[in-house]
Design a protein around this nucleic acid. Structure first.
Length: 743
DNA sequence: ATAGGGTTAGTA
DNA sequence: TACTAACCCTAT
């Protein structure tokens, strides 16, 4: 294989490299330290001004590895050159086939576009000469890493996917960059994008993250033959075409045939009004590309709103307080009352909606026709409950209930003061998700994609500012200010005061974090680690104890766990899915500590600046200190902590005492571990807890504003903290503790 | 009991 | 027709 590769390389490389592929010899600009770099960073995004650019330039790498699969590489006229002639955006930034020190690309779109021709030609000569040499001595593809000294917080998992795929001809379907500057900038600043970038990516060997619109965070995959699937690669481009096709298809109206209408009516007669999906799926009926909504609309067209929901009562708007909603509700009730008259649909609609009938007379289905279809009785009513709008008062009560009972929806429902007896617990949950998406997400629930999108936008700002804070280092920064939307679910009744971690002498121990943060940030690869709650399940299953010593934990680190962490680290939106089951938070933390141990002897304190486990609950902030800067905290686990004897805790091991969490939510919710600085702060307060000598369960309830031991009867979690074990001190200040866990 | 995805109603 | 919100279903 290798001789073959060499043969091919020597045959084609000199020509190609010396004449046509002049890579930049020197970086034109230093990489921007803060702003994520632009287009060049993400060769497979739609942001690329020239969709085939990356395809071409990476073809060298691919062809070196599999020349037999790419016979066109033998062409004396490299395809890159041919294509370069096509447009103004040439491939002058193409990397050499092999260089020991490939120059970093600033990643700025401007660099791609505005380079003067003179520079271009100069570089062409230089690089041509250089590449000629290289081509003689390089039988293998160039090394993937250009900066092996770069420290990784987590071992890279995605490096192997950095090869861009050879695109088929259709692969050049990347759409032109037409988005406006602002859009591009926004996209480039997106957290997903930043998270996906990797610290020491060799640009042409990078993992290809397809971040085209609607496909963010999705990793392009190779197919069995080792190629990236065409589908994945050109998906971004094709999606647009597909959408255009779709909208064209949608544009032309698909008129209902008589047979379809008959089938619809038969279906309604059989399954009842509202069972659109069932009707649609029923093989007895034929519909031409209809959706359930189409069926519903068609039925309304041909039969009006009659015949349905006759079970609905008037006056369901008794709690409607909004004028519009109320009136809507009432009219709804009126319609339903009318519809409750068990007369044939046609007769009902005729009397109830004369206007409608006149409007779509031809579409109306008469009783005769219904009889003809064998429908001689009113359509069965929908079995759905009445749709009942949530009023402002409802929302208010819902929030109140949430503060009172947490996310135990059936408690909220049962609370007589709140008046949700007619609702189902899930109704309350759904409404809460809609009305208070931030709180919902912070409570550890998964937002629906739509809501999540909104939520992401909100949190992006906070995340990036936190990152900048981290970059500045611990010493000279205030703890990240967490906005309500980002950090806390704040029961107004809360009286706990969580103080910001004081800056202390330990802070300097974390200078390395600042360093690392800036390192990572420079490349934009830094992101919080997101772990799934499955780690808790896993830990349970494996009987991990929170007092396990760090060394043993280190020894037990599952490689795939770290890989998974890295995977998650690459994309902050990716939930960590451990291979077996979960880990306890303590385990995860210890793992992290031990991992960082390779960096700094203060192993137990070494946490990434914003290591984020997923947390189901956020301890409520103090009502009186809403502006106080607080660290994101909260660690939880699937087990109550009261059975853990603090005396048994192993020195040097951070131990997280964990409140009970619903198993279901434990699987997917978010946790945020404190940052190192916050872990280091508040040491003295921990002594207070130890002196009190209560169980973890009790001592975790702590108020730093003179109300120690206040018990909060709710589902709010208590995070008892990380037990340092050095003397009487603990790493956690009070901010890492939430409310007591009393149920 | 709950989480999360799916379905349907209503509206612009 | 698209979209949102209310409601439903089902696996856990």
């Amino acid at each position: 294989m290798e001789p073959r590769i060499q043969t091919l390389l020597s045959a084609s490389s000199p020509d190609r490299n010396s004449q046509h592929l002049p890579p930049p010899a020197i970086p034109r600009r230093p990489p921007l330290p803060v702003e994520p770099s632009a287009v060049g960073e993400e060769p497979w995004t739609n942001n690329n001004p020239n969709g085939c650019n990356d395809y071409i330039r990476n073809e060298h790498l691919v062809s070196a590895a599999r020349p037999q699969l790419l016979p066109r590489q033998k062409s004396s006229v490299p395809i890159a050159e041919v294509l370069n002639d096509d447009g103004p955006t040439t491939f002058h930034n193409l990397p050499p086939v092999s260089t020991n020190n490939p120059p970093p690309f600033s990643g700025r779109l401007a660099d791609l576009i505005t380079e003067p021709d003179t520079q271009r030609s100069k570089r062409r000569k230089l690089d041509g000469a250089r590449n000629e040499l290289n081509s003689l001595t390089l039988p293998k593809p160039p090394p993937l890493k250009k900066n092996v000294n770069r420290r990784h917080l987590i071992p890279p998992l995605l490096q192997g996917l950095h090869h861009p795929p050879p695109l088929p001809p259709q692969g050049r379907l990347f759409p032109p960059i037409t988005e406006q500057r602002g859009d591009l900038g926004d996209r480039l600043r997106s957290p997903v994008r930043e998270a996906g970038r990797h610290t020491d990516r060799a640009r042409d060997n990078e993992p290809v993250l397809d971040r085209s619109e609607g496909n963010k965070g999705r990793e392009t995959q190779r197919d069995q033959a080792g190629f990236f699937s065409h589908k994945d690669i050109v998906e971004g481009g094709e999606r647009i075409e597909e959408n255009q096709r779709k909208s064209k298809e949608k544009a032309k109206r698909n008129k209902w045939t008589e047979e379809e209408t008959k089938d619809l009516l038969r279906g309604v007669s059989r399954f009842g009004i509202g069972s659109w999906k069932r009707i649609l799926k029923c093989p007895d009926y034929t519909f031409h590309g209809r959706t359930a909504v189409d069926l519903k609309d068609r039925f309304r067209t041909c039969c009006g709103d009659n015949g349905k929901n006759s079970n609905k009562k008037t006056g369901t708007s008794q709690d409607s307080e909004k004028g519009d909603k109320s009136s809507a509700q009432e009219s709804n009730g009126r319609d339903k009352a009318q519809a409750s008259d068990p007369q044939p649909p046609e007769a009902s609609s005729a009397s109830a909606n004369p206007v409608k009938k006149a409007k779509s007379k031809t579409d109306r289905v008469g009783a005769a026709k219904l009889a003809e279809l064998g429908i001689d009785k009113p359509f069965e009513k929908s079995k759905r409950r009445d749709r009942k709008q949530f009023t402002d008062k409802d929302d208010e009560n819902l929030l109140k209930g949430f503060e009172r009972h947490g996310s135990v929806w059936h408690f909220i429902r049962s609370d007589p003061e709140l008046g949700f007896q007619s609702r189902h617990p899930t109704d309350l949950r759904d409404r809460f998700r809609i009305k208070y998406p931030e709180k919902y997400a912070q409570a550890g629930y998964k937002l629906k994609p739509k809501d999540a999108g909104k939520q992401k936008e909100k949190t992006t700002i906070t995340d990036s500012s936190d990152k900048r804070n981290a970059r500045r280092g611990v010493q000279d920064r205030a703890p990240p200010t967490l906005t309500t939307s980002a950090a806390w679910t704040a029961p107004s009744s809360g009286t706990h005061t969580l103080l910001p971690p004081p800056v202390n002498n330990y802070s300097s121990s974390f200078d390395d974090f600042g360093d690392r943060a800036s390192e990572d940030d420079a490349d934009g690869s830094y992101s919080p680690i997101t772990l799934s709650r499955n780690i808790f399940d896993w830990a349970d299953a494996n009987n991990y104890q929170t007092n396990t010593t760090l060394p043993s934990l280190s020894a037990d680190i599952n490689p795939s766990f770290l890989s998974s962490i890295d995977s998650a680290n690459t994309n902050s939106q990716t939930a960590f899915k451990p291979p077996t089951k979960g880990w306890t938070s303590a385990t995860a933390l210890a793992v992290t500590s031990s991992y960082n141990n390779t960096i700094n002897p203060l192993s137990t304190l070494q946490l990434p600046p914003a290591l984020a486990l997923h947390s189901n609950y956020m301890p409520p902030p103090p009502a009186s200190t809403s502006s106080t800067t607080l660290a994101p905290i909260s660690v939880s686990s699937a087990r109550p902590s009261s059975n853990i004897n603090p005396r048994l805790l192993t020195p040097n091991l951070p131990t997280i005492i964990i409140p009970n969490v619903p198993a279901a939510s434990a699987r997917s919710a978010m946790h945020n571990l404190p940052r190192p600085a916050e872990l280091l702060s508040g040491l003295d307060r921990e002594r207070e807890r130890d002196v009190r000598g209560g169980t973890e369960h009790q001592s975790a309830v702590q108020n730093t504003q003179g109300q120690p031991g206040e018990e909060y009867h709710s589902r709010w979690p208590n995070v008892a903290g990380l037990e340092e074990g050095l003397g009487e001190r603990s790493l956690l200040n009070s901010s890492v503790r939430g409310r007591g866990w009393e149920e």
